[in-house]
């Protein structure tokens, strides 16, 4: 389990996330792509922490911040999906061509 191997796995997760976020029409599937990207970022962060800053807990602290970002993104995403569905009956991105009205 070398550092390079873990970073390649993290890159694969980010790549899948980029593909999902760009290709999916459904809002929730799009959010899954974003989640996968943050997932890969956390993995890369902890790999670098483990290989370099061993013993320094501030690296893990940054991981906690990443997870907070993930939770915030998810919660606001669900709230926006709910609101957009109520107001415009839209559940895919193609139905939202205008920001207003």
């Amino acid at each position: 389990m070398t550092l390079e191997a873990v970073l390649v796995v993290a890159a694969a997760l980010v790549g899948i996330g980029v593909y999902g976020a760009l290709s999916q029409q459904s809002f929730v599937m799009l959010m899954m792509g974003l989640e996968l990207m943050i997932n890969g970022a956390i993995l890369a962060l902890v790999a670098l922490w483990s290989a370099s800053a061993g013993g320094n807990p501030q690296g893990q602290m940054l991981g906690v911040v990443f997870m907070t970002v993930m939770a915030v993104e998810m919660a606001l995403g669900f709230a926006l999906v709910t609101n957009v569905y109520r107001v415009r009956r839209a559940d895919i991105t193609e139905k939202l061509r205008r920001l207003k009205g």
Partner: peptide, 20 residues
Amino acid sequence: MVHQHRVAVAAGAGSFVLLA
């Protein structure tokens, strides 16, 4: 349910190759 599929595949594969 996908749009701009080819662009998305290229972007995903490209970012993977770059990051890896």
